[in-house]
Simulated assay, not measured.
Amino acid sequence: MNIMSNWTELQKRLLSSVVLIPIALFCLWYGRWAYDLLILGVMVGLVWEGENLLNQSMKGVRGFALLLWPLCAGLIAIKGAWLMVFYLGMSGFFFGLRAWIPLFVSIVGGSSLLYLRGRPDGLYETLFVMAVVVASDSTAYAVGRLVGGPKLAPAISPGKTVSGSIGGLLGAALMGGLVAFYAQAYWSLSAFIWGGVIGVAAQAGDLGESAVKRRVGVKDSGTLIPGHGGLLDRFDGLLFAAPLAALLAYRAGHMAFWALGL
């Protein structure tokens, strides 16, 4: 029965991936309105899911305003008015600390992804971040299952191992180097290093969301994506990695952020 249940779950994951990955890649490649709409939808969805996860009421005017907040922030970010985005994100504290957390996380993460894609090398920089996060998550899972060993943070996420974390770090570094090579046709040591650093941020985001779910006593943040759980389950690492990459990109100016010296 357990084998059949695992197989059914795996089928759901694969089918969801077959549908979602091409859509995400098309939006990333095409950019413009397709990418903007994708990120805006994710921002609103993250707030809806986060507020429900924290048992915040989404009824009436308050619920409508909570969903309107990230949408407005995203639209302002598309226009490049970053100071206004910051003010809007901070003003969400008006709803109370518990309700503000999902708002702030959604606005910071979503705005960072919009900023990255809007840069001169935005396609490759955004692809770099997304690919590194996926590689970190996938290799951490695979190595953890194959090697096992001591738990990384048993009080937060009993399934994560030290070996998996190291594997995820190496996978993230390798993917960073590969994406940078694809973008510029030569190998870059700094790309491997920044890939690893962003991989650490992705793992921190994963652990952070696991801690919240453990605190509220749920397995998944939602049920929107069959076999994968909710948006927060899929975007937790990216919500930490994207702001870091955006800060690096801002510092890098017109060159790709992975070319920054250490």
Rank of each mutant, 00 (worst) to 15 (best):
L116Y: 10
V108L: 15
L113M: 14
L146S: 13
V134D: 01
D121A: 13
L152H: 00
G122R: 07
S157K: 05
V132G: 04
Y124T: 07
G110L: 08
F94G: 02
I107L: 06
G92T: 09
G159Q: 11
G110C: 10
P120Y: 06
G144D: 07
A131Y: 02
F93N: 03
L127K: 06
L123Y: 15
V143F: 06
G118K: 02
I101K: 07
A142I: 15
R98Q: 07
Y115N: 00
L114F: 09
L116V: 08
I156T: 12
Y115E: 05
I101D: 00
S106R: 01
S157F: 04
L114C: 01
L152K: 05
F94V: 15
V143C: 07
E125D: 00
I101T: 12
A135G: 03
G109Y: 03
G92M: 09
V105T: 13
M130T: 06
D137C: 05
L97I: 13
T161K: 10
L127P: 02
G167C: 11
P120N: 11
G144H: 06
P154I: 04
A140M: 10
V108K: 06
P158V: 00
L127Q: 00
V132N: 01
V134Q: 13
V134W: 15
L116K: 03
V129E: 01
F95Y: 14
G110T: 03
L103K: 06
F95L: 11
G148K: 11
L127V: 07
S112H: 10
K151P: 05
A155K: 14
L123D: 03
A153H: 08
A99K: 08
P102N: 04
L146F: 11
G110M: 05
Y124E: 09
A142E: 01
V162L: 15
P150M: 09
L146N: 12
Y115W: 15
S106C: 10
V108S: 11
G110V: 06
E125A: 03
S138G: 01
Y141E: 14
V108Q: 04
V143G: 05
S111F: 01
Y124V: 01
S111H: 05
S165D: 07
S112T: 09
G148W: 08
G118R: 03
V143I: 15
F95W: 12
L127T: 08
